[in-house]
Write a protein that binds this DNA or RNA. Structure first.
Length: 617
DNA sequence: CTCCTCGTTCTCGCCGGAAT
DNA sequence: ATTCCGGCGAGAACGAGGAG
């Protein structure tokens, strides 16, 4: 992709800069410097200059009005889109009451409060939601109600090519049972290593941080970098001469060698490579560096899992939670173990807390909150990655908590699907440096008995793709797979319209249309853009709406299918790429509620939704 | 059956830091 | 100075289990 949203945008043209570096405050006359606004808090302000008067605190902006949305760089538009998409999900709804008019909740003297986390519409209290069959929220799970499995659901999204589809099939669907391939249940010592993966880091040109990989590989077998060449290409690591520099932990020095040479995986947990010519970087093992040969990571390493609990009180003033996962995790494990038995052995929670976190005053509500975060993170298999990062920036407990919350959001969205709607994407606004995740429903692409083709979804096979390197979107395609003029759907008519539009605007490329218009009589499928540009699709969509409007056709509903290819280790090692499909239900009722379609690009609220996908790092 | 205790969940509101 | 937002604690409420 040419526009990587994770890269900072360049400054706007010089013509947008204020006439001078300083100017006098219009209120008090104090001379202040202009500061470029990078839009960190409010992306919409990107590209403007601001000054806060050092004397009267007055604010001044240059230019006075924000730039046009279209003038903002793609990554800023992306951030705006993410921000907008999360507004609804994060909106704090205070003081809601149960949405069931005949609420039979247990609060007698006051109206029963609804649970803001409830996924039903309207939001219900736990009692009403449970009796309604539950909403997907764990606390609202219906009691002793068997969930039908699998839930079959047809989707019109499809893999972009058979080759990628095959890789997806091999790596995901044939994995049994479906679970996070990198998940390792913590154990009391280093034997937790399942021996099926190898971590290696590469320092590439033009980047101080190493690129971290975890790949399927039998520990003990010699590791040949050439076998990972596809991974390397995806991360822009190119070795034209077939040479690499390898840090030999025994010799404690860098050696230059061909990538076809196998290296020992027993003497160090992480293999370090650098592209020839790179001589420095973050965490770089230097010549004679003992740490890299004896320990798995160049950062300060955490003590062995569960090796001990803190015996002496923490320093006065130490607050809960502790800053680093490597400190929190052993104590949390102790608590979880202790809480399984404390009813029997006559201890109590407070006493166990005092053992696990000596000297720290912990409020119970806070402890439970963090214990739940730990349990979820452990279940998802991400604790170890944070633990291994030790007392470094990559091992912060707060980041683990944030990762769990992102996962929760992704799951909530997946589980809140109505039976007839396909799964929405996991809105991951940011992804930690070390661990990325993506909620994926198991699905099978096949031909049905009636001759149509589509996907079957298995709701109870929701699993998370965890990867130790940030994902890269290596390709994407956006298809409209459903469009209608009203609530009933009139696909063929829209299809006809799309054909006409195709003749007028080559931004739209039909994809297998002949097959699809026959198969899905009330649906239309055509690609409106490809991976070359994230935002061209929106432009095409607006043009399509405009075109339909000019034809006296009002589009009621459009839904998108997005297909992404993410770099990710596969379970069986067969391929370096997983296919992760997402479908975005961007129902555009906007056009049914207003007589006029949006004519200004900045009015594309709904089409913005189509840009909210998955963050490329 | 009622009451009590303890553990747990959830909401509300305060606080402080960051951004502007 | 103001706004926003995340973290945290207080407190209400619920549930399980035990004692009387």
């Amino acid at each position: 992709m040419t526009d990587n949203p994770s890269q900072p945008s360049p400054s706007p043209a010089d013509s947008l800069q204020p006439p001078s570096a300083t100017s006098a405050c219009s209120k008090c006359g104090t001379v202040n410097q202009w500061v470029f606004c990078s839009g960190l808090t409010t992306p919409r302000n990107w590209g403007r200059w601001y000054q806060r008067c050092s004397k009267c605190n007055a604010w001044h902006w240059w230019p006075r009005e924000p730039l046009d949305v279209e003038a903002l760089p793609p990554d800023v538009q992306y951030r705006m889109a993410v921000e907008q998409s999360l507004q609804t999900a994060n909106a704090k709804e205070k003081g809601i009451v149960c949405g069931n008019p005949g609420c039979h909740g247990k609060r007698k003297s006051k109206p029963q409060r609804g649970n803001v986390a409830c996924l039903s519409d309207p939001k219900l209290c736990g009692t009403c939601c449970q009796s309604n069959g539950g909403c997907g929220l764990a606390a609202h799970a219906p009691v002793k109600t068997a969930r039908p499995s699998p839930i079959q659901q047809k989707s019109f999204a499809r893999p972009p090519t058979p080759a990628f589809s095959q890789s997806f099939t091999n790596s995901v669907l044939h994995a049994s049972p479906p679970q996070n391939p990198l998940k390792r249940k913590y154990q009391s010592d280093d034997s937790a290593d399942d021996g099926c993966t190898v971590d290696f880091h590469i320092w590439n040109k033009g980047r101080s941080e190493p690129i971290k990989f975890r790949v399927p590989h039998s520990r003990g077998a010699r590791f040949i970098l050439k076998a990972q060449i596809e991974y390397l290409k995806l991360r822009d690591v190119h070795l034209p001469d077939g040479l690499i520099e390898y840090y030999d932990p025994l010799a404690r020095d860098w050696i230059n060698m061909p990538i076809t040479i196998g290296v020992d995986t027993k003497s160090s947990k992480v293999l370090y490579f650098r592209v020839p010519g790179v001589s420095d970087g973050v965490g770089f093992p230097s010549r004679g560096d003992r740490a890299t040969s004896a320990t798995p990571d160049p950062v300060k390493v955490a003590p062995p899992v569960n090796s001990h609990l803190m015996q002496t009180p923490y320093a006065p003033g130490t607050k809960f939670p502790l800053t680093y996962t490597c400190d929190m995790a052993p104590a949390m494990r102790h608590m979880i173990d202790a809480m399984k038995s404390y009813r029997e052995d006559n201890t109590c929670l407070k006493a166990e807390l005092a053992k696990a976190f000596p000297g720290i005053d912990i409020k119970l509500a806070t402890f439970y909150r963090h214990r739940n975060h730990f349990a979820k993170a452990d279940k998802a298999g991400i604790v170890e990655a944070f633990e291994r990062a030790g007392w470094s920036a990559g091992g912060k407990w707060a980041d683990l908590v944030a990762a769990v919350e992102r996962l929760n959001r992704a799951r909530s969205l997946s589980l809140s699907l109505s039976p007839s709607s396909p799964p929405p994407p996991s809105p991951s606004p940011s992804i930690p440096e070390i661990v990325a995740m993506h909620a994926v429903l198991q699905r099978v692409w096949r031909t049905f008995d009636d001759g149509t083709a589509g996907c079957e979804y298995y709701e109870d096979h929701l699993f998370d793709a965890f990867i130790t390197t940030p994902p890269i979107i290596v390709g994407s395609r956006k298809d409209i797979f459903s469009a209608s003029f009203d609530t009933t759907g009139h696909g063929p008519e829209v299809n006809c319209l799309a054909k006409q539009f195709r003749l007028t605007d080559d931004l739209i490329h039909h994809a297998d249309q002949n097959n699809f218009e026959k198969s899905f009589g009330n649906a239309v499928s055509f690609s409106i853009r490809d991976a070359a540009s994230f935002y061209g699709g929106d432009t095409a969509l607006i043009k399509f709406h405009q075109f339909a409007y000019n034809q006296d056709v009002e589009i009621y509903n459009i839904m998108f299918a997005n297909t992404f290819l993410l770099e990710c280790p596969s379970v069986d090692g067969a391929g370096p790429v997983w296919l992760c499909q997402d479908i975005i239900p961007a129902t555009t009722k906007l056009w049914s509620e207003h007589a006029n379609i949006p004519t200004r690009p900045s009015s594309k609220d709904n089409t913005f939704l189509s840009s909210i996908i998955f963050k490329a790092c």
